[in-house]
Write a protein that binds this DNA or RNA. Structure first.
Lengths: 146, 146
DNA sequence: CATTTATGTAACTCAATAAGTTACACGAAT
DNA sequence: ATTCGTGTAACTTATTGAGTTACATAAATG
């Protein structure tokens, strides 16, 4: 299983907006930090807006977090970008006339759900505030090494 | 993130082999339970063999589990099929000259690792024996409803 | 208030990858 | 010896995420 870079990129976007909240921040500028295109950034910002995590206004380069960073968890961002997609893929169909094929999907589905919930619970323990603080601490250390 | 059907299919294969251990089981037969092709099944069986979970012999339709079903966890199968691929994708590169871009990969990597371990721990709690038993119980219930 | 700047979004291309197919060498069973 | 089955390489196809182009519309600016 693999979670696409959309998730990482969305966290990146939110962290960037919060850290640089005092200056103008266009999708172009954010894109250059992620090293992707501005359109991709805008698309992701659209998801974050729909999820109620971000406020944006067309035409104005002034995105704002819709909540305090301490109230946004990685799980919130996960749902905003990945929705309710399953973490583990089940087959579309297996042979219903076979004992194994006829039952395994349901059985595995239950176990997968447990593993997924477990991962999500962990993501829910970390807030955007934690991420930002850790980024700033790391940067401070780098600066002190120069 | 999404784990491919290879994982589900591999568990399916192992469960099938164990349940039908008294009769001849060719890749063709297993494929018809999964509703896929025999070559795909053989490829997966190759992975399981490499991981030390399955014994197969070229030419003979008699695959055997290499361990007792109670000693094979879903995590073992996970590693056999998915290896050590990350659960969450990080960007290949972000702008090192930006405070956010220069630090976020390392920061997120740490949090991702925690979530991944959490999911894996859950997968490690379930054995092939559990899966097989649950399949058989479900089947028994279905049969009793006829 | 006209011009510039920026967002929001649709439509398309491109690349990566999982799944499925064909082909065939080689081992095992009969 | 012939048939059956595995192991594997090489190819095709489908899906999907990422990136691009284009443009309508909203806000900022001088």
């Amino acid at each position: 299983m693999r979670i696409s870079t959309r998730f990482s990129d969305s966290i990146h976007i939110l962290a960037f907006i919060e850290i640089y909240k005092d200056i103008k921040v266009s999708s172009e500028v954010i894109a250059s930090s992620i090293e992707t295109s501005a359109v991709v950034v805008r698309r992701l910002m659209g998801n974050l807006r729909e999820a109620g995590l971000l406020d944006t206004k067309q035409g104005s380069a002034e995105p704002k977090l819709a909540k305090d960073p301490s109230q946004i968890t990685l799980l919130d961002v996960y749902f905003a970008t990945e929705g309710n997609k399953p973490l583990f893929e089940l087959d579309k169909k297996t042979n219903p006339d076979c004992i194994v094929g006829g039952n395994i999907q349901e059985v595995l589905g239950d176990y997968y759900e447990q593993a997924k919930i477990s991962a999500q619970r962990k993501l829910n323990e970390t807030t955007l505030k934690d991420v930002i603080e850790t980024i700033l601490v790391k940067q401070k250390y780098k600066d002190s090494q120069k």
